[in-house]
Design a protein around this nucleic acid. Structure first.
Lengths: 185, 185, 185, 185
DNA sequence: CATGAATGAGTTTTCATTCAT
DNA sequence: TATGAATGAAAACTCATTCAT
């Protein structure tokens, strides 16, 4: 109950970021007012400016601190998979990616709405595709997967999962993997 | 140079829609002001209201009149393809779809930015996936393509083309088709 | 059917004044737009400016040309009454005044709404009270009515009729006269 | 000089209502801009919207909070009059009513100008006439006043005082009462 | 730390008025 | 005579931001 100053400040900061994320996702960055956000956080607009320089700084902080690129990287490079079949690992990977997007639906919405976020989103996509492509290439090199254009394949699965999430009709990742690698079960 | 009143009005209307599309794509619907649009069209803000009831009505008109769903439908249902190999037709189809998105990049941007456009975009995606899926299913039934989950395949190619366009790194549709149907060349 | 230029112009002018009167009465002078008026007249706003210099000029013309002060004067000074009993004449007079207000309800509304019309209305009231006062004084002098403060009496009946009209509950003028002159029937 | 937040807000609210009342009275509700009002209050237009939802809400608040119907009711029903002669009480009553209108000249002007206020004004008139009518009827029943149409009489005195106030030539209430009840002095 | 009154620069929208056709 | 496209100025209103308390 008793928080130190520092804890309290940290807690408030996070609370504001939470509120901002929710509100931005619902109304879009431009459509949401500072008042909307402070209302959602149960504080007054003025307080927001003790924690963030401006509305724009708030958006940037959100993108920087809540961005899930690190988590995506983790997911896609997790070790201890070498022993398991490529299609199994790939399925799991895509499911994890799908889950990541689901968990961060609000942030994804911000990525889509904000003109600012264009670059951040592009980076996410590039990185994701590269990591999946590397995985596929390694397994092709190992002779486990048939030779194919791994970059295109990575791009394909990545895009499919992302769009499916965004349009609200989640994809069945098993089927997706089977579509691409029908013989490697 | 001399235009009738009616022609002038029609021309101005289109010009305003053009300007709005450009500005909305660049700044987002919420980020663009009516003044931005009228400036882009070289007129005064008031004039916009002779042609459209409100900024919102302008967005709706844009989505309704400049929507490329009809063109998409045309593309995907064009006849005279029965005689040609499925992969060839599919490649052509996806290239056309990619071209359509390229031609309508601004509108696509609006679809992405506007909270209003969420529904319109979802419909576009659904329709596109359905039409491609139907095509694939017919060719599978005809024994030309290997049996596979045609719905997932449709979703895959559709999403891949769309995301590639959006992220600015156009996909090579031939490679995409070959990835899915390596043996049907 | 064929009108001379002059006739046509006169007719249109009157039509515009009619429309303006109706619209001003309904929405108030400030609340009514030039477009409202031209719409009501079935013409375009531009045309209005061929007949009147400005919206304000239109109001002034309305007050000047449609003012019923002349008619009021006529009513209150009509001759051929000397032979009849004062209360009878007074009753008839007030009824006629009431009728005049009813016939000009729209104009009265404009008088009330327009800040401009304050002076015109005051003049109307003054004149009306003076004329009724003169009538009463003459009859007192003739010994037909009891001596009383004729100015106050005039003001009283005038105000009563006017307010009753305006608030929508027309007064029974016979009762009003009987109230003031119970013995002079 | 030092005011608490709450006091300051309350004070500002009243100040804005004061300013609005003055400006509305001078220019009419439609003729007055929000800027006119904020200028009169020495603040920026935006501040007005912290205290009132819209210009229309401001008018309604004015009518509701500054309406003098309660005060009118008080005046006309004040007790402790039974012992005094009816004409004396009536004279005093009308003088008080006249004073009330004088004190609220601005509000009366708003009543006259605003299309919205039509209903509020009608209620005021109705109520006022009813209360005066009741008073007269009681005194007739008590045999103190001659039998007469008390409703018409009430309407008469009410209208006379109101119009006189409005047209700027205050009535002499003693004379008015004497006109109606010449023998009851 | 937190409030919320206040600002100023913007927003969308309206409208009296002009003028080429 | 009549139209209606276009303007410019102002309207109502919003909102990010500041600051005294």
């Amino acid at each position: 109950m008793t928080r130190t100053r520092r804890e309290q400040a940290e807690w408030r900061r996070e609370q504001l970021l939470d509120a901002a994320l929710r509100v931005f996702a619902a109304k879009g960055v431009d459509g949401a007012s500072v008042k909307d956000i402070s209302d959602a956080a149960g504080v007054t607009p003025g307080l927001l400016y003790r924690y963030f320089e401006s509305k724009e700084a708030l958006v940037e902080t959100l993108l920087a601190e809540r961005g899930f690129l690190p988590r995506l990287r983790e997911l896609l490079t997790a070790t201890g998979r070498d022993a398991r079949p490529a299609t199994e690992v790939l399925t799991e990977l895509l499911a994890a990616f799908d889950g990541l997007l689901a968990d961060n639906a609000d942030l994804v919405a911000v990525f889509f709405s904000a003109t600012h976020a264009r670059a951040a989103m592009a980076e996410l996509v590039r990185e994701g595709q590269r990591l999946i492509g590397d995985f596929l290439a390694a397994r092709v090199a190992a002779g486990e997967l048939r030779p194919h254009d791994t970059a295109t394949a990575a791009r394909t699965v990545f895009a499919t999962v992302a769009v499916s999430r965004r349009t609200g009709s989640p994809v069945d990742v098993e089927r997706l993997v089977e579509l691409l690698f029908p013989d490697e079960r």
